[in-house]
Design a binder for these strands. Structure first.
Length: 498
RNA sequence: GCCCCCGUCGUCUAGCCCGGUCUAGGACACCGCCCUUUCAAGGCGGAGAUCGCGGGUUCAAAUCCCGCCGGGGGCGCCA
Protein backbone atom coordinates (compact mmCIF):
# COMPACT_ATOMS: atom_id res chain seq x y z
CA UNK A 1 0.00 0.00 0.00
CA UNK A 2 1.14 3.46 -0.80
CA UNK A 3 4.26 2.46 -2.72
CA UNK A 4 5.85 5.41 -4.42
CA UNK A 5 5.86 3.78 -7.79
CA UNK A 6 3.22 1.46 -9.14
CA UNK A 7 3.01 0.79 -12.85
CA UNK A 8 0.81 -1.53 -14.79
CA UNK A 9 0.71 -3.42 -18.01
CA UNK A 10 -2.80 -3.87 -19.33
CA UNK A 11 -3.05 -5.96 -22.46
CA UNK A 12 -6.29 -6.98 -24.05
CA UNK A 13 -6.42 -10.70 -24.76
CA UNK A 14 -7.28 -10.53 -28.42
CA UNK A 15 -4.16 -12.17 -29.80
CA UNK A 16 -0.64 -13.18 -28.99
CA UNK A 17 1.65 -10.75 -27.22
CA UNK A 18 2.79 -8.28 -29.84
CA UNK A 19 6.37 -6.96 -29.83
CA UNK A 20 5.16 -3.42 -29.28
CA UNK A 21 3.13 -4.43 -26.26
CA UNK A 22 5.99 -6.51 -25.00
CA UNK A 23 8.19 -3.46 -25.09
CA UNK A 24 5.57 -1.48 -23.19
CA UNK A 25 5.49 -4.23 -20.59
CA UNK A 26 9.27 -4.20 -20.37
CA UNK A 27 9.45 -0.46 -19.84
CA UNK A 28 6.79 -0.63 -17.16
CA UNK A 29 8.72 -3.41 -15.51
CA UNK A 30 12.11 -1.70 -15.73
CA UNK A 31 10.69 1.56 -14.45
CA UNK A 32 8.93 -0.06 -11.51
CA UNK A 33 11.92 -2.14 -10.50
CA UNK A 34 14.37 0.69 -10.92
CA UNK A 35 12.37 2.63 -8.38
CA UNK A 36 11.72 -0.32 -6.14
CA UNK A 37 8.04 -0.22 -7.04
CA UNK A 38 5.40 -2.69 -8.16
CA UNK A 39 4.15 -3.82 -11.51
CA UNK A 40 0.51 -4.80 -11.85
CA UNK A 41 -0.82 -6.98 -14.62
CA UNK A 42 -4.39 -6.26 -15.59
CA UNK A 43 -6.39 -7.90 -18.33
CA UNK A 44 -8.49 -5.52 -20.39
CA UNK A 45 -11.20 -7.80 -21.62
CA UNK A 46 -14.21 -5.52 -21.71
CA UNK A 47 -14.59 -6.32 -25.37
CA UNK A 48 -16.29 -9.65 -24.97
CA UNK A 49 -16.45 -10.23 -28.69
CA UNK A 50 -12.73 -10.35 -29.24
CA UNK A 51 -11.33 -11.33 -25.88
CA UNK A 52 -10.38 -14.96 -25.37
CA UNK A 53 -9.17 -16.71 -22.29
CA UNK A 54 -6.62 -18.69 -24.28
CA UNK A 55 -4.98 -15.46 -25.38
CA UNK A 56 -4.80 -14.28 -21.81
CA UNK A 57 -2.99 -17.46 -20.90
CA UNK A 58 -0.68 -17.12 -23.87
CA UNK A 59 0.16 -13.54 -22.98
CA UNK A 60 0.93 -14.45 -19.40
CA UNK A 61 3.12 -17.28 -20.55
CA UNK A 62 5.00 -15.05 -22.98
CA UNK A 63 5.55 -12.37 -20.37
CA UNK A 64 6.95 -14.92 -17.98
CA UNK A 65 9.11 -16.33 -20.71
CA UNK A 66 10.54 -12.88 -21.33
CA UNK A 67 11.45 -12.66 -17.68
CA UNK A 68 8.94 -10.05 -16.64
CA UNK A 69 7.61 -10.43 -13.12
CA UNK A 70 4.59 -8.70 -11.70
CA UNK A 71 3.44 -8.24 -8.15
CA UNK A 72 -0.29 -8.37 -8.64
CA UNK A 73 -2.28 -9.91 -11.42
CA UNK A 74 -5.07 -12.29 -12.39
CA UNK A 75 -2.83 -15.32 -11.96
CA UNK A 76 -1.43 -14.43 -8.54
CA UNK A 77 -4.08 -12.17 -7.07
CA UNK A 78 -3.32 -9.16 -4.92
CA UNK A 79 -5.04 -6.66 -2.71
CA UNK A 80 -6.74 -4.90 -5.59
CA UNK A 81 -8.28 -8.01 -7.10
CA UNK A 82 -9.92 -8.89 -9.37
CA UNK A 83 -7.49 -8.04 -12.15
CA UNK A 84 -9.70 -8.92 -15.07
CA UNK A 85 -11.93 -6.10 -16.13
CA UNK A 86 -14.69 -8.47 -17.05
CA UNK A 87 -14.89 -9.31 -13.34
CA UNK A 88 -15.04 -5.72 -12.22
CA UNK A 89 -18.30 -4.64 -13.79
CA UNK A 90 -19.98 -4.07 -10.43
CA UNK A 91 -17.24 -1.67 -9.49
CA UNK A 92 -17.60 0.28 -12.70
CA UNK A 93 -21.33 0.46 -12.32
CA UNK A 94 -20.96 2.21 -9.02
CA UNK A 95 -18.84 4.93 -10.59
CA UNK A 96 -21.10 5.27 -13.59
CA UNK A 97 -23.98 5.86 -11.21
CA UNK A 98 -21.95 8.44 -9.41
CA UNK A 99 -21.20 10.32 -12.63
CA UNK A 100 -24.84 10.11 -13.67
CA UNK A 101 -26.01 11.33 -10.33
CA UNK A 102 -23.63 14.26 -10.24
CA UNK A 103 -24.47 15.22 -13.80
CA UNK A 104 -21.04 14.46 -15.24
CA UNK A 105 -22.67 11.91 -17.49
CA UNK A 106 -26.03 11.39 -19.09
CA UNK A 107 -28.04 8.77 -20.92
CA UNK A 108 -28.12 9.01 -24.69
CA UNK A 109 -30.91 7.32 -26.63
CA UNK A 110 -29.63 8.06 -30.11
CA UNK A 111 -29.65 5.03 -32.36
CA UNK A 112 -26.59 3.89 -34.27
CA UNK A 113 -28.41 4.97 -37.44
CA UNK A 114 -28.92 8.49 -36.18
CA UNK A 115 -25.27 8.75 -35.20
CA UNK A 116 -24.19 7.39 -38.54
CA UNK A 117 -26.25 10.10 -40.22
CA UNK A 118 -24.61 12.78 -38.09
CA UNK A 119 -21.23 11.43 -39.01
CA UNK A 120 -22.08 11.42 -42.72
CA UNK A 121 -23.35 14.93 -42.58
CA UNK A 122 -20.25 16.19 -40.82
CA UNK A 123 -18.12 14.50 -43.42
CA UNK A 124 -20.06 16.03 -46.25
CA UNK A 125 -19.75 19.48 -44.76
CA UNK A 126 -16.07 18.89 -44.24
CA UNK A 127 -16.02 19.45 -40.53
CA UNK A 128 -14.74 17.04 -37.88
CA UNK A 129 -17.38 14.80 -36.41
CA UNK A 130 -18.49 15.32 -32.88
CA UNK A 131 -21.56 14.02 -31.15
CA UNK A 132 -24.27 16.61 -31.50
CA UNK A 133 -25.32 16.55 -27.88
CA UNK A 134 -28.88 15.80 -28.82
CA UNK A 135 -29.61 13.90 -25.61
CA UNK A 136 -27.54 16.18 -23.45
CA UNK A 137 -30.42 18.04 -21.97
CA UNK A 138 -33.26 15.57 -21.78
CA UNK A 139 -35.45 16.18 -18.78
CA UNK A 140 -35.58 13.52 -16.06
CA UNK A 141 -39.14 12.85 -17.16
CA UNK A 142 -38.13 12.20 -20.75
CA UNK A 143 -35.35 9.90 -19.63
CA UNK A 144 -37.71 8.00 -17.40
CA UNK A 145 -40.22 7.72 -20.20
CA UNK A 146 -37.67 6.36 -22.67
CA UNK A 147 -36.41 3.86 -20.16
CA UNK A 148 -39.96 2.75 -19.52
CA UNK A 149 -40.40 2.26 -23.23
CA UNK A 150 -37.39 0.00 -23.17
CA UNK A 151 -35.35 2.22 -25.47
CA UNK A 152 -31.71 1.19 -25.46
CA UNK A 153 -29.24 3.83 -24.36
CA UNK A 154 -25.56 4.47 -23.85
CA UNK A 155 -24.03 6.63 -21.17
CA UNK A 156 -22.04 9.60 -22.34
CA UNK A 157 -19.60 11.76 -20.48
CA UNK A 158 -20.59 15.41 -20.49
CA UNK A 159 -17.54 17.20 -21.83
CA UNK A 160 -17.27 20.75 -20.47
CA UNK A 161 -17.16 23.36 -23.21
CA UNK A 162 -13.87 24.87 -24.27
CA UNK A 163 -11.69 23.42 -21.57
CA UNK A 164 -8.01 23.16 -22.36
CA UNK A 165 -6.35 20.12 -20.88
CA UNK A 166 -2.64 20.40 -20.29
CA UNK A 167 -0.50 17.69 -18.86
CA UNK A 168 3.16 17.02 -18.56
CA UNK A 169 4.05 13.81 -20.28
CA UNK A 170 7.23 12.23 -18.94
CA UNK A 171 8.40 11.58 -22.48
CA UNK A 172 6.65 14.09 -24.69
CA UNK A 173 6.81 17.02 -22.35
CA UNK A 174 3.91 19.46 -22.11
CA UNK A 175 0.97 18.36 -24.23
CA UNK A 176 -2.16 20.46 -24.76
CA UNK A 177 -5.56 19.44 -25.98
CA UNK A 178 -8.71 21.40 -26.43
CA UNK A 179 -11.65 19.46 -25.20
CA UNK A 180 -13.80 20.81 -28.03
CA UNK A 181 -11.99 18.53 -30.42
CA UNK A 182 -14.06 15.66 -29.21
CA UNK A 183 -17.71 15.49 -28.32
CA UNK A 184 -19.44 13.84 -25.41
CA UNK A 185 -17.98 10.37 -25.55
CA UNK A 186 -19.52 7.06 -24.64
CA UNK A 187 -18.52 5.46 -21.35
CA UNK A 188 -21.11 2.69 -21.22
CA UNK A 189 -22.37 0.74 -24.22
CA UNK A 190 -26.01 -0.02 -24.83
CA UNK A 191 -25.42 -3.56 -23.60
CA UNK A 192 -24.39 -2.11 -20.29
CA UNK A 193 -20.69 -2.81 -20.60
CA UNK A 194 -18.33 0.06 -19.83
CA UNK A 195 -15.84 1.28 -22.35
CA UNK A 196 -12.04 1.34 -22.22
CA UNK A 197 -11.55 5.05 -21.64
CA UNK A 198 -13.71 4.85 -18.58
CA UNK A 199 -12.54 1.62 -17.03
CA UNK A 200 -8.84 2.41 -17.32
CA UNK A 201 -9.38 5.44 -15.19
CA UNK A 202 -11.35 3.63 -12.55
CA UNK A 203 -8.89 0.76 -12.45
CA UNK A 204 -5.74 2.83 -12.50
CA UNK A 205 -7.12 4.97 -9.71
CA UNK A 206 -8.36 2.10 -7.58
CA UNK A 207 -5.20 0.12 -8.15
CA UNK A 208 -3.22 3.17 -7.11
CA UNK A 209 -1.20 3.35 -10.27
CA UNK A 210 1.25 6.23 -10.04
CA UNK A 211 2.72 6.10 -13.55
CA UNK A 212 0.80 5.21 -16.65
CA UNK A 213 3.36 4.10 -19.22
CA UNK A 214 1.81 3.08 -22.49
CA UNK A 215 2.04 3.39 -26.26
CA UNK A 216 1.80 6.71 -27.99
CA UNK A 217 -1.39 5.60 -29.68
CA UNK A 218 -3.07 6.38 -26.38
CA UNK A 219 -1.85 9.93 -26.23
CA UNK A 220 -5.04 11.42 -27.61
CA UNK A 221 -7.14 9.42 -25.17
CA UNK A 222 -5.42 11.05 -22.26
CA UNK A 223 -7.47 14.25 -22.10
CA UNK A 224 -10.70 12.26 -21.97
CA UNK A 225 -9.30 10.23 -19.13
CA UNK A 226 -8.14 13.29 -17.26
CA UNK A 227 -11.68 14.61 -17.44
CA UNK A 228 -12.91 11.43 -15.82
CA UNK A 229 -10.25 11.51 -13.11
CA UNK A 230 -11.39 14.98 -12.26
CA UNK A 231 -15.06 14.17 -12.26
CA UNK A 232 -14.52 11.24 -9.94
CA UNK A 233 -12.13 13.16 -7.73
CA UNK A 234 -9.26 10.76 -8.26
CA UNK A 235 -5.64 11.88 -8.16
CA UNK A 236 -4.19 12.07 -11.66
CA UNK A 237 -1.19 9.82 -12.27
CA UNK A 238 1.89 10.74 -14.27
CA UNK A 239 1.73 9.79 -17.93
CA UNK A 240 4.46 8.57 -20.22
CA UNK A 241 3.70 7.84 -23.83
CA UNK A 242 6.16 5.61 -25.62
CA UNK A 243 6.90 6.21 -29.28
CA UNK A 244 5.48 3.38 -31.31
CA UNK A 245 7.43 0.73 -33.15
CA UNK A 246 7.46 0.92 -36.92
CA UNK A 247 7.92 -1.73 -39.56
CA UNK A 248 10.48 -1.44 -42.34
CA UNK A 249 8.06 0.67 -44.38
CA UNK A 250 7.74 3.14 -41.48
CA UNK A 251 4.15 2.32 -40.68
CA UNK A 252 3.01 0.92 -37.35
CA UNK A 253 4.42 -2.56 -36.87
CA UNK A 254 1.73 -5.12 -37.65
CA UNK A 255 1.15 -8.58 -39.02
CA UNK A 256 1.90 -7.32 -42.48
CA UNK A 257 5.52 -6.96 -41.46
CA UNK A 258 5.95 -10.65 -40.75
CA UNK A 259 6.76 -12.01 -37.33
CA UNK A 260 5.48 -9.56 -34.76
CA UNK A 261 4.60 -11.71 -31.80
CA UNK A 262 6.87 -12.69 -28.97
CA UNK A 263 5.76 -16.24 -29.47
CA UNK A 264 6.85 -16.33 -33.07
CA UNK A 265 10.35 -15.34 -32.06
CA UNK A 266 10.33 -18.02 -29.43
CA UNK A 267 9.37 -20.58 -32.06
CA UNK A 268 12.14 -19.25 -34.26
CA UNK A 269 14.73 -20.03 -31.64
CA UNK A 270 15.30 -16.66 -30.04
CA UNK A 271 16.38 -16.36 -26.43
CA UNK A 272 14.20 -14.38 -24.05
CA UNK A 273 17.21 -12.50 -22.69
CA UNK A 274 18.15 -11.35 -26.17
CA UNK A 275 14.63 -10.29 -27.04
CA UNK A 276 14.25 -8.44 -23.75
CA UNK A 277 17.59 -6.73 -24.27
CA UNK A 278 16.80 -5.80 -27.83
CA UNK A 279 13.32 -4.48 -27.14
CA UNK A 280 14.66 -2.39 -24.27
CA UNK A 281 16.96 -0.65 -26.71
CA UNK A 282 14.16 0.36 -29.02
CA UNK A 283 13.74 3.97 -28.13
CA UNK A 284 15.95 3.91 -25.09
CA UNK A 285 19.68 3.88 -24.63
CA UNK A 286 21.78 3.59 -21.50
CA UNK A 287 24.03 6.52 -20.76
CA UNK A 288 27.20 4.47 -20.88
CA UNK A 289 26.34 3.11 -24.32
CA UNK A 290 26.62 -0.53 -23.29
CA UNK A 291 24.38 -2.60 -25.52
CA UNK A 292 24.51 -6.12 -24.18
CA UNK A 293 22.76 -5.85 -20.86
CA UNK A 294 21.31 -8.35 -18.45
CA UNK A 295 17.93 -7.74 -16.90
CA UNK A 296 19.60 -6.51 -13.73
CA UNK A 297 21.80 -4.12 -15.67
CA UNK A 298 18.79 -2.82 -17.54
CA UNK A 299 16.91 -2.20 -14.32
CA UNK A 300 19.88 -0.44 -12.82
CA UNK A 301 20.36 1.86 -15.81
CA UNK A 302 16.80 2.48 -16.88
CA UNK A 303 15.77 6.10 -16.79
CA UNK A 304 12.48 7.09 -18.33
CA UNK A 305 13.75 10.54 -19.21
CA UNK A 306 16.29 8.97 -21.55
CA UNK A 307 13.59 7.57 -23.78
CA UNK A 308 13.99 8.86 -27.30
CA UNK A 309 10.80 10.43 -28.57
CA UNK A 310 10.87 9.49 -32.24
CA UNK A 311 9.28 6.25 -33.35
CA UNK A 312 11.74 3.40 -33.92
CA UNK A 313 11.91 1.03 -36.84
CA UNK A 314 12.12 -2.58 -35.78
CA UNK A 315 15.40 -3.93 -37.12
CA UNK A 316 15.29 -7.71 -37.05
CA UNK A 317 18.85 -8.00 -38.36
CA UNK A 318 20.16 -6.51 -35.19
CA UNK A 319 17.99 -8.71 -33.04
CA UNK A 320 19.39 -11.67 -34.92
CA UNK A 321 22.92 -10.49 -34.26
CA UNK A 322 22.16 -9.90 -30.62
CA UNK A 323 20.72 -13.36 -30.22
CA UNK A 324 24.01 -14.65 -31.61
CA UNK A 325 25.93 -12.69 -29.02
CA UNK A 326 23.89 -14.33 -26.27
CA UNK A 327 24.53 -17.74 -27.75
CA UNK A 328 28.24 -17.40 -28.23
CA UNK A 329 29.22 -15.10 -25.40
CA UNK A 330 26.65 -14.58 -22.73
CA UNK A 331 25.15 -17.89 -21.68
CA UNK A 332 27.30 -20.44 -19.94
CA UNK A 333 27.75 -23.74 -21.69
CA UNK A 334 25.39 -25.86 -19.62
CA UNK A 335 22.69 -23.25 -19.79
CA UNK A 336 23.03 -23.01 -23.54
CA UNK A 337 23.01 -26.76 -23.98
CA UNK A 338 19.88 -27.05 -21.87
CA UNK A 339 18.16 -24.45 -24.00
CA UNK A 340 19.14 -26.11 -27.24
CA UNK A 341 17.79 -29.40 -25.97
CA UNK A 342 14.59 -27.86 -24.65
CA UNK A 343 14.05 -26.05 -27.88
CA UNK A 344 14.48 -29.19 -29.95
CA UNK A 345 12.18 -31.06 -27.65
CA UNK A 346 9.39 -28.48 -27.67
CA UNK A 347 9.56 -26.87 -31.06
CA UNK A 348 10.84 -29.55 -33.35
CA UNK A 349 7.83 -29.05 -35.57
CA UNK A 350 9.12 -25.65 -36.63
CA UNK A 351 12.25 -27.14 -38.16
CA UNK A 352 12.70 -28.29 -41.75
CA UNK A 353 12.00 -31.94 -42.34
CA UNK A 354 15.70 -32.70 -42.59
CA UNK A 355 16.54 -30.84 -39.43
CA UNK A 356 13.77 -32.64 -37.60
CA UNK A 357 15.55 -35.90 -38.23
CA UNK A 358 18.80 -34.44 -37.00
CA UNK A 359 17.00 -33.14 -33.94
CA UNK A 360 15.77 -36.59 -33.12
CA UNK A 361 19.26 -37.96 -33.24
CA UNK A 362 20.58 -35.12 -31.12
CA UNK A 363 17.95 -35.79 -28.49
CA UNK A 364 18.94 -39.45 -28.38
CA UNK A 365 22.57 -38.70 -27.53
CA UNK A 366 24.07 -38.35 -24.08
CA UNK A 367 23.98 -34.85 -22.62
CA UNK A 368 27.77 -34.63 -22.34
CA UNK A 369 28.22 -35.31 -26.01
CA UNK A 370 25.70 -32.68 -27.00
CA UNK A 371 27.32 -30.20 -24.69
CA UNK A 372 30.68 -30.89 -26.27
CA UNK A 373 29.24 -30.23 -29.71
CA UNK A 374 27.56 -27.06 -28.53
CA UNK A 375 30.86 -25.80 -27.20
CA UNK A 376 32.45 -26.47 -30.58
CA UNK A 377 29.85 -24.80 -32.77
CA UNK A 378 28.41 -22.10 -30.54
CA UNK A 379 30.05 -19.32 -32.49
CA UNK A 380 28.39 -20.32 -35.70
CA UNK A 381 24.69 -20.37 -34.98
CA UNK A 382 22.54 -17.37 -34.20
CA UNK A 383 19.27 -18.94 -33.17
CA UNK A 384 18.49 -22.22 -31.45
CA UNK A 385 16.66 -23.22 -34.56
CA UNK A 386 19.88 -23.22 -36.52
CA UNK A 387 21.67 -25.64 -34.26
CA UNK A 388 20.71 -28.88 -36.03
CA UNK A 389 21.92 -27.56 -39.34
CA UNK A 390 25.22 -26.51 -37.92
CA UNK A 391 25.73 -29.53 -35.72
CA UNK A 392 24.57 -32.11 -38.20
CA UNK A 393 28.07 -33.47 -39.03
CA UNK A 394 28.56 -34.43 -35.41
CA UNK A 395 25.45 -36.52 -35.35
CA UNK A 396 24.73 -37.88 -38.77
CA UNK A 397 26.89 -40.55 -40.37
CA UNK A 398 24.55 -41.64 -43.13
CA UNK A 399 24.58 -38.40 -45.01
CA UNK A 400 24.11 -37.56 -48.64
CA UNK A 401 26.48 -35.30 -50.51
CA UNK A 402 25.37 -31.75 -51.11
CA UNK A 403 25.44 -30.53 -54.72
CA UNK A 404 28.56 -28.55 -53.93
CA UNK A 405 30.24 -31.60 -52.45
CA UNK A 406 29.28 -33.59 -55.51
CA UNK A 407 30.80 -30.90 -57.69
CA UNK A 408 33.99 -30.93 -55.71
CA UNK A 409 34.42 -34.68 -56.14
CA UNK A 410 33.93 -34.36 -59.87
CA UNK A 411 36.46 -31.59 -59.94
CA UNK A 412 39.20 -33.54 -58.19
CA UNK A 413 37.89 -36.64 -59.96
CA UNK A 414 36.51 -39.60 -58.06
CA UNK A 415 39.76 -41.46 -58.63
CA UNK A 416 41.88 -38.89 -56.87
CA UNK A 417 39.28 -38.50 -54.13
CA UNK A 418 39.46 -42.22 -53.60
CA UNK A 419 43.23 -42.08 -53.44
CA UNK A 420 43.16 -39.35 -50.84
CA UNK A 421 40.60 -40.98 -48.65
CA UNK A 422 42.07 -44.47 -48.88
CA UNK A 423 45.52 -43.30 -47.97
CA UNK A 424 44.13 -41.22 -45.13
CA UNK A 425 42.09 -44.13 -43.85
CA UNK A 426 45.08 -46.40 -44.00
CA UNK A 427 47.11 -44.00 -41.90
CA UNK A 428 44.37 -43.57 -39.36
CA UNK A 429 44.01 -47.30 -38.97
CA UNK A 430 47.71 -47.73 -38.41
CA UNK A 431 47.62 -45.29 -35.54
CA UNK A 432 47.16 -46.27 -31.95
CA UNK A 433 45.12 -43.21 -31.21
CA UNK A 434 43.71 -40.55 -33.47
CA UNK A 435 42.41 -37.24 -32.22
CA UNK A 436 41.82 -33.71 -33.37
CA UNK A 437 45.44 -32.73 -33.03
CA UNK A 438 46.46 -35.56 -35.40
CA UNK A 439 43.96 -34.69 -38.07
CA UNK A 440 45.89 -31.88 -39.67
CA UNK A 441 49.24 -33.64 -39.45
CA UNK A 442 47.99 -36.70 -41.27
CA UNK A 443 46.20 -34.61 -43.89
CA UNK A 444 49.44 -32.82 -44.65
CA UNK A 445 51.28 -36.10 -44.95
CA UNK A 446 48.72 -37.32 -47.42
CA UNK A 447 48.99 -34.15 -49.45
CA UNK A 448 52.74 -34.44 -49.54
CA UNK A 449 52.83 -38.09 -50.51
CA UNK A 450 50.25 -37.67 -53.27
CA UNK A 451 51.79 -34.35 -54.32
CA UNK A 452 48.48 -32.55 -53.98
CA UNK A 453 47.59 -29.14 -52.63
CA UNK A 454 46.73 -29.34 -48.92
CA UNK A 455 43.59 -27.33 -49.54
CA UNK A 456 42.27 -29.91 -51.92
CA UNK A 457 42.98 -32.70 -49.50
CA UNK A 458 41.24 -30.93 -46.66
CA UNK A 459 38.18 -30.22 -48.71
CA UNK A 460 37.97 -33.79 -49.95
CA UNK A 461 38.26 -35.07 -46.42
CA UNK A 462 35.55 -32.69 -45.37
CA UNK A 463 33.27 -34.07 -48.02
CA UNK A 464 34.14 -37.61 -47.02
CA UNK A 465 33.49 -36.96 -43.35
CA UNK A 466 30.48 -34.66 -43.55
CA UNK A 467 29.11 -34.66 -47.08
CA UNK A 468 29.51 -30.91 -47.16
CA UNK A 469 32.11 -28.48 -48.45
CA UNK A 470 32.03 -26.15 -45.51
CA UNK A 471 31.36 -26.17 -41.82
CA UNK A 472 33.11 -26.66 -38.49
CA UNK A 473 36.82 -27.18 -38.21
CA UNK A 474 37.50 -30.82 -38.96
CA UNK A 475 39.87 -31.25 -36.04
CA UNK A 476 37.03 -30.28 -33.74
CA UNK A 477 34.74 -32.74 -35.44
CA UNK A 478 37.27 -35.55 -35.16
CA UNK A 479 37.83 -34.71 -31.55
CA UNK A 480 34.16 -35.09 -30.81
CA UNK A 481 33.32 -38.20 -32.80
CA UNK A 482 36.53 -40.19 -32.27
CA UNK A 483 38.75 -42.53 -34.26
CA UNK A 484 36.24 -45.24 -34.97
CA UNK A 485 33.60 -42.95 -36.34
CA UNK A 486 36.19 -41.38 -38.59
CA UNK A 487 37.10 -44.78 -39.97
CA UNK A 488 33.47 -45.71 -40.46
CA UNK A 489 32.74 -42.53 -42.33
CA UNK A 490 35.75 -42.80 -44.57
CA UNK A 491 34.92 -46.40 -45.39
CA UNK A 492 31.37 -45.51 -46.14
CA UNK A 493 32.51 -42.72 -48.40
CA UNK A 494 34.75 -45.09 -50.34
CA UNK A 495 31.90 -47.48 -50.82
CA UNK A 496 29.81 -44.60 -52.08
CA UNK A 497 32.39 -43.83 -54.73
CA UNK A 498 32.13 -47.25 -56.32
C1' G B 1 -10.56 17.18 -43.02
C1' C B 2 -9.47 18.10 -37.66
C1' C B 3 -6.23 17.23 -33.29
C1' C B 4 -1.60 15.47 -31.43
C1' C B 5 3.41 13.56 -31.77
C1' C B 6 7.97 13.19 -34.35
C1' G B 7 12.36 14.43 -37.98
C1' U B 8 21.04 13.03 -36.66
C1' C B 9 24.59 7.60 -41.47
C1' G B 10 20.04 2.27 -44.84
C1' U B 11 18.52 0.84 -39.44
C1' C B 12 19.00 1.45 -33.75
C1' U B 13 21.08 5.60 -31.55
C1' A B 14 25.00 9.41 -28.67
C1' G B 15 25.18 14.60 -28.66
C1' C B 16 20.34 18.85 -28.29
C1' C B 17 17.70 20.80 -22.13
C1' C B 18 23.17 23.88 -20.12
C1' G B 19 25.32 26.88 -28.10
C1' G B 20 32.11 26.29 -29.28
C1' U B 21 35.53 20.08 -26.99
C1' C B 22 31.18 17.59 -33.44
C1' U B 23 36.37 18.04 -39.44
C1' A B 24 29.00 14.65 -35.59
C1' G B 25 30.71 9.33 -31.68
C1' G B 26 29.03 4.03 -31.09
C1' A B 27 26.18 -0.50 -32.69
C1' C B 28 23.74 -3.61 -36.73
C1' A B 29 24.04 -4.30 -41.91
C1' C B 30 27.69 -3.43 -46.05
C1' C B 31 32.94 -3.48 -48.27
C1' G B 32 38.31 -4.70 -47.76
C1' C B 33 42.45 -6.94 -45.24
C1' C B 34 44.33 -10.38 -41.43
C1' C B 35 43.66 -15.15 -38.94
C1' U B 36 42.26 -19.99 -41.16
C1' U B 37 41.60 -26.63 -44.28
C1' U B 38 36.24 -24.18 -45.58
C1' C B 39 31.89 -21.52 -43.34
C1' A B 40 31.23 -18.87 -39.11
C1' A B 41 33.33 -16.28 -35.15
C1' G B 42 37.34 -12.93 -34.00
C1' G B 43 41.02 -8.80 -35.03
C1' C B 44 42.11 -4.45 -37.98
C1' G B 45 40.52 -0.86 -41.47
C1' G B 46 36.88 1.54 -44.96
C1' A B 47 32.65 3.61 -46.97
C1' G B 48 28.22 5.83 -45.13
C1' A B 49 24.57 11.77 -42.01
C1' U B 50 26.46 19.22 -45.28
C1' C B 51 22.31 16.80 -38.29
C1' G B 52 14.42 17.21 -43.08
C1' C B 53 14.36 22.26 -45.72
C1' G B 54 14.46 27.71 -45.51
C1' G B 55 15.06 31.93 -42.71
C1' G B 56 16.72 34.36 -38.42
C1' U B 57 19.62 35.21 -33.33
C1' U B 58 25.01 34.88 -32.41
C1' C B 59 31.93 35.96 -33.16
C1' A B 60 30.02 30.72 -33.31
C1' A B 61 23.99 26.34 -34.15
C1' A B 62 22.83 19.47 -34.83
C1' U B 63 22.17 22.37 -30.36
C1' C B 64 18.10 28.72 -29.33
C1' C B 65 13.62 31.22 -32.26
C1' C B 66 10.16 31.34 -36.56
C1' G B 67 8.08 29.30 -41.05
C1' C B 68 7.66 25.29 -44.33
C1' C B 69 8.00 20.27 -45.81
C1' G B 70 7.97 15.19 -44.74
C1' G B 71 6.66 10.89 -41.67
C1' G B 72 3.59 8.73 -37.97
C1' G B 73 -0.53 8.28 -34.50
C1' G B 74 -5.54 9.42 -33.02
C1' C B 75 -10.35 11.09 -34.32
C1' G B 76 -15.74 4.13 -32.59
C1' C B 77 -21.27 1.59 -28.45
C1' C B 78 -11.93 -1.38 -30.19
C1' A B 79 -8.34 -1.41 -26.72
Amino acid sequence: MGKEVRTRFAPSPTGWLHLGNARTAIFNYLFARHHGGDLILRIEDTDRERSKREYEEAIIEDLKWLGIEWDEGPDIGGEHAPYRQSERFDIYKKYVDELLEKGYAYRCFCTPEELEAEREKAKKEGRPYRYSGKCRNLTPEQVEEYIKQGKPYVVRFRVPDGREIVFNDLIKGEVKFNVNDFGDFVIVRSDGSPVYNFVVVVDDALMEITHVIRGEDHLSNTPKQILIYEALGFPIPKFAHLPIILGEDRSKLSKRHGAVSVRQYRFDGYLPEALLNFLSLLGWYPKDGKEILSKEELIERFDISDIHNAPAVFNKEKLYWMNGVYIREVLDLDDLTRRVLDYLKQYREYLDKKDQKVAEIILSKPYEFVRDVVSKVRDSFFTLKEFPKRAKPFFVEEFELTPDAEKHIQKVTPEVAKQIVSLYLEKVKSMETFGGEDFKKVAKEVAKELKLKPGMVFKTLRVALTGETQGVSLDLLVDAIGKEAVERRLERFLSLLK
